[in-house]
Amino acid sequence: MSFIKTTASTLAITAISATAAAARDNVQVAGSSTVLPYASIVAEAFGDNTDFPTPVVESGGSSAGLARFCEGIGETTIDVANASRGIRDGEIEECAANGVTDIIEVRIGYDGIVFASQIDGPDFTAFTPSDLFNALAPQVMVDGELVDNPYTQWSEFNADLPAADILAFIPGTKHGTREVFEEKVIAVGCEETGAFEAMMEAGMSEDDAEDACLAVRTDGLSVDIDGDYTETLASIDANPNAIGVFGLAFYENNTDTLKVATMSGVEPTTETIAAGDYPVSRPLYFYIKGAHIGVIPGLKEYAQFFMADELAGPDGPLAQYGLVSDPELAATQAKIEAEEAM
């Protein structure tokens, strides 16, 4: 009998605690693992410096975060979604279908994507988008013809590069970083080398050719990393000849083991990215659920605190950690103040 009693009382406790869960007093954030470090810095400082509880910041990726953001409104859904890309139209529709309408978009700043290799490895110090396209595309231009990628060494298509075997660790397709890598590097290389035109001439439609441009070779010389940058770093450690794709902040934390390459002659630094000189960078965002402002205590204050000059400004802790601060910070601050939805 006592077992039945215990079970019943346990279920009762569970039910009571589930009801108690309805009163949430902390901000809940989820999304991009690129934005996570910045969000966690802000969340900790927010807890330390205000009377609000410290927000919870979960990781999981931009798409997963936005999907959860769009699940609906209410205290069991998240208040803020972090994203390393802009919200897509489909996601806005999905949101609207679930009653999430007043979405406030906040651009935090910019993040640079760098190509780095082992500090003692071959001399990978300067790349152009064409080099990476030649190294990683499934089909490249050789003597004016589009052929299956014959290259196995960097020096085969650019004599300035070291005679080392091609091996690149690139972000997997579920990462926001992959999109930037494809658009700002591979697609650019595709056009520069003339592969795009060759594809069009071969009878492909423009859309098909654009898609084909973004493909990477599948013979094992280009490896997708679905985990985070620590995994890429471990792969680089194990392969002296390999190059890997990292966020600028991650690289700056590991300058003792990694060396970085310039892209089209520009070195990736917070200055070159802020000035727009370094080509491979992207804006970072977070999205606030308008309907939760005033319901979840501290939500608007969190957003205001995040974008305050003391934090997101050029001298703040976020810039310290590698974020390239947004020159239009004041406009963003005004937007949050006015709760201006998209």
């Binding site: 605690s17 902390n26 996570l36 969000a39 966690s40 509880p53 919870v56 990781s59 999981g60």
Partner: peptide, 22 residues
């Protein structure tokens, strides 16, 4: 179920909070 990230940033306030707070 969302236990990775910056989650264990505060102690729970009490028994119920211990069960239901992040």
């Amino acid at each position: 179920i969302g236990m990775v990230g910056y989650v264990a940033r505060e102690y729970p306030d009490g028994i119920i909070s211990g069960f239901v707070d992040s």
